[in-house]
């Protein structure tokens, strides 16, 4: 494509208003799936009709961690693995904000794993988008807690022998009220899940499978980004309401996608307000009651 073609594409791009135009071009490689998820997110924001001044986005560190910096929202690029506790402070500091955490599989489930499980347990009112490319993209393709057994990574040069996490199962078990998995082939469904996530109160976990052609695909001789999309298309099975025990992934095996969990329980702040209202009676002034659900 020539530069002028690209320019025209950009002008027509309906997500452009959601991006910090002055920061483009972005750093992501051709064929990388992260940008597709951002597209879906921008669409979800449009559909939500939310006041975007009240939506904040928090990322950790990694290729996916750069998402916060490209979105035209109040955006925070924090430290590796710690987006969730930063977001927790942001939400508790101003409950009127809708706080979205957007980060990579390594960031959220390895170094940040402890925060993920506790935020889900507490039902902290956060929407977490986890871009799972089965690898540590930013640092050059090392093994991640999501890398399927058998896939080769720079620090598993003879193939991975460690058992990976099934992230939806983990989030479900820890108490997330909304859990879904889609791939970047399923753009409509992913955008819809993000929309539902934005509207949901409580801890939302959305796993977005996305190709990392530069490191994961190439090292495993899986072709380019398009080949990964073909794989997603051919091997994905939509099973809404699937038991998350059954959605584990294997190397180039079947992918169960869908909305797995959608339930309600009090958020941390609701529980606190409810409890203190009972304990202190009239003396207690409920703290920040609108929860960003304007």
């Amino acid at each position: 494509m020539s530069d002028t073609d690209l320019l025209e594409l950009e002008i027509e791009n309906p997500v452009a208003p959601y991006l910090r135009q002055e920061r483009l071009p972005h750093i992501w490689c051709p064929g990388c799936g992260i940008g597709t998820t951002v597209n879906c997110f921008a669409r979800a924001l449009t559909e939500s009709g939310m006041n975007l001044d009240k939506v904040a986005i928090v990322s950790g560190i990694g290729c996916t961690g750069r998402v916060a910096g490209y979105l035209n929202l109040d955006s925070f690029h924090t430290t590796h693995g710690r987006a969730i506790p930063f977001a927790t402070g942001l939400k508790l500091g101003n409950p009127d904000l809708k706080v979205v955490v957007y980060s990579g599989d390594g960031d959220l489930s390895a170094i940040g794993g402890n925060h993920l499980v506790h935020a889900a347990r507490r039902n902290m009112d956060l929407m977490v988008v986890c871009v799972n490319n089965f690898t540590y993209g930013m640092t050059g393709g090392q093994v991640a807690p999501t890398t399927p057994i058998g896939a080769t990574q720079t620090t598993m040069p003879y193939g991975n022998f460690e058992n990976p996490f099934s992230l939806p199962f983990l989030a479900d078990a820890c108490g997330a009220v909304y859990v879904a998995r889609w791939t970047v082939y399923h753009v409509k469904q992913l955008a819809k899940a993000m929309l539902e996530g934005l509207r949901k109160k409580g801890f939302v976990f959305i796993e977005a499978l996305a190709p990392c052609p530069t490191l994961y695909s190439r090292r495993n001789r899986l072709g380019d980004g398009v080949d990964q999309l073909k794989y997603y298309k051919e091997r994905s099975k939509i099973v809404n309401g699937a038991d998350t025990k059954d959605v584990g992934l294997t190397f180039q095996g079947d992918i169960i996608v869908g909305k797995f969990v959608d339930r309600d329980r009090p958020t941390w702040l609701d529980a606190m307000n409810e409890h203190y209202s009972q304990h202190f009676g009239e003396k207690y002034v409920p703290y920040g009651v609108s929860h960003g659900q304007e």
Binding site: R82, F86, G93
Partner: peptide, 16 residues
């Protein structure tokens, strides 16, 4: 859940 979390949660609180 730990001091790593505490020390960044307060930074979120400050920006709120």
């Amino acid at each position: 859940e730990d001091e790593i979390a505490s020390s960044i949660a307060i930074l979120g609180g400050a920006w709120a």
